[in-house]
Design a protein around this nucleic acid. Sequence first.
DNA 1: GACGCTGAGACTGTTTGTGTCTTATTGTCT
DNA 2: AGACAATAAGACACAAACAGTCTCAGCGTC
Lengths: 195, 195
Amino acid sequence: MSAGGTTLERRVLDAAKTCCEKWGVAKVTIDDIANESGVSRASLYRLFPGGKDVLFEALRLQELEDFFTRLSAHVEGADGLEDLLVCAVVAATAELRADRHLALMLASEPGETLGHLTVDGLPRIMRVATVFLAPFVDPYLPRRESAALVELLSRLVISYFLAPSQHVDLGDPESARTFIVTHILPAFDAALIRS
Amino acid sequence: MSAGGTTLERRVLDAAKTCCEKWGVAKVTIDDIANESGVSRASLYRLFPGGKDVLFEALRLQELEDFFTRLSAHVEGADGLEDLLVCAVVAATAELRADRHLALMLASEPGETLGHLTVDGLPRIMRVATVFLAPFVDPYLPRRESAALVELLSRLVISYFLAPSQHVDLGDPESARTFIVTHILPAFDAALIRS
DNA sequence: GACGCTGAGACTGTTTGTGTCTTATTGTCT
DNA sequence: AGACAATAAGACACAAACAGTCTCAGCGTC
């Protein structure tokens, strides 16, 4: 995590994202990214030794961090654990749904994309989610518990996003609140830090 | 014009359209279309001898006819020449703007797309527009005049779509009506068939 | 059983893309 | 001015993808 990244690196990754939005990951070439970013192919390989794979890996990482940065901002003002969780879950779901990039990727190459969202990517998603969101939960729960809670909810958000349920809609504040109050919070009640 | 087209042909063209929506014309291959349509490459070349170019040409033609078919439906109920024109212009503009396919094409390969929309394609667009829309105008104007009117408005719709004006918004019924009443109709007033 | 239509896939030449490398060019610091 | 680092430009070899053609086998119809 961290590392602001050179201006150049950012420029390249942004260009890569733009290209993906236009054509879908599968169809983007190094040349496309070089043209879009105005960075020469040579520099591009210097920046990401290993080429395409490394570059896209870096892009996924950046996207992931950006995602949670935006999410953190959303969650900033929440008051109380329940509100905090509802807000986070709703915002995350909404953003996943609104992400045209992601939608296009899922539409064009479900296999790859699903892989990055599940088997390959989940551990990392969990890690980043914990780093970003646990601090918000920490005031209410002991460290271990808050990490566990963040992980649990992250998994559920992704699951409900990929396979929507008829009963629960985590994009809807009402539904999300009901779900969290009845199915999540009770399990953590014992550990609650009452201040 | 005309020719319903084999089921197979339709299937292929629809698949081609889907592919274009996913990846943009520039990135679509014959194999993509074959896979998407479930039609073998062999049949594909049999159907469109000449390959890619011929296929995309056919696709543009179909899109064009579909466009005007939808537009005709929109215009069906209009009462009086003024309403007819306003309705047609607004619907056409709205549809152009809403067309994700077209938007993506313009975003990814403006050169090509613009070519098909202007220098190469305009004459054909005019022709098809006239065939489809002139009948609606015929009750109000002599044949020559109605054709001229349709052509004039078609050109203007495309022009305002490609290069929006600050003063006129042909997607807005109010604005379109004002524009038509003050800048178009007067020129045809003399030819009006009053019934 | 001949006929027409389709899918599967082999095949060739061409194009496009990748990754590496060398050679200018540019701007900065001393 | 001259040395230095960073970048662009683009040549190059190799690999992959693509276009277009062709053959053949399967299948339903007459």
